[in-house]
Design a protein around this nucleic acid. Structure first.
Lengths: 143, 143
DNA sequence: CTATTAAAAGATAAATATATCTGTTTATCG
DNA sequence: CGATAAACAGATATATTTATCTTTTAATAG
């Protein structure tokens, strides 16, 4: 439903949002979010390429969020690593259907649209600010 | 978002619903739905195992729907081949979270729930009966 | 300028999902 | 009964996703 890779990306971004003080290395984030370190490094690359995070090389480098959590929808994170794609034309390539989806594919496409909308309207800030016993990702506190 | 396999299963079930007169072979369904025949055979097995369809061996055998389209939600088809699974406990296995999901995973889980609900409340009959120019799956008519 | 740190890039491996192929079993018909 | 049709089962192949490992490039501190 939502890929492992997207999960990892969301964890990393939430982690950075929780710790906005300074850049954090892939190794730090990986430890914190329990994501395989070398795989996370690819994920971070993608996030940087899509300007969800900003990367700083060299000593004291690492990753920081490129946006305020308030203006960062979950969808942006997901789409950076594993884009949600709507159905644009008949998957069976039926000529008479074309862009005019049949009820089956319209239904599926609408469901995808709903998910997309959900993740578009919910921001990282909303995740951070929701009152809860469970601090996102962590047993307690900060990195 | 929804796997290829689920797509195939839905196509097959819609195809059977459109042609309730007699059993249809995997080969027929595959031709009609443009699903790879040998792969479809596995998909049909799963649908039969979950009693979404009924299988009849031997000459003049094939598959027929096991239920009225009115009482067959898309979710049942999807869950037969590629179950939608909710998040039940913290994917990071944090002891302090456990079944008490943090806001991130609650959000993701809710999104999955929405999809599940969408597919639970929409039936194969609704697909068949929706007024449209595009007959589901086909250029025109029946098998 | 050199040593160190950390991202970036590339190559490889393992796991899973998708797809194909071959044979076996079961039912139907003549 | 024997021939045939078709589901069922198992083995193999291909593609994609997930994961690991190694090398290179860039930035910083001393």
């Amino acid at each position: 439903m939502i890929s492992q890779t997207s999960e990892y990306a969301l964890r990393a971004v939430v982690c950075l949002a929780q710790n906005p003080d300074k850049p954090h290395t892939t190794a730090e984030i990986a430890r914190w979010t329990k994501v395989p370190e070398h795989y996370l490094s690819k994920v971070m690359l993608a996030l940087a390429k899509h300007e969800v995070v900003y990367s700083k090389k060299g000593l004291h480098g690492g990753y920081v969020l490129a946006h305020d959590p308030e203006s960062l929808p979950l969808l942006n994170v997901i789409n950076a690593v594993d884009p949600i794609k709507r159905i644009k034309s008949c998957p069976l390539k039926l000529k008479t259907h074309g862009a005019n989806l049949c009820p089956l594919h319209k239904q599926i496409n609408d469901a995808i649209g709903t998910i997309e909308e959900t993740f578009r309207t919910s921001t990282i800030a909303m995740i951070l600010n929701e009152p809860t016993q469970s601090i996102p990702l962590c047993e307690s506190g900060k990195i």
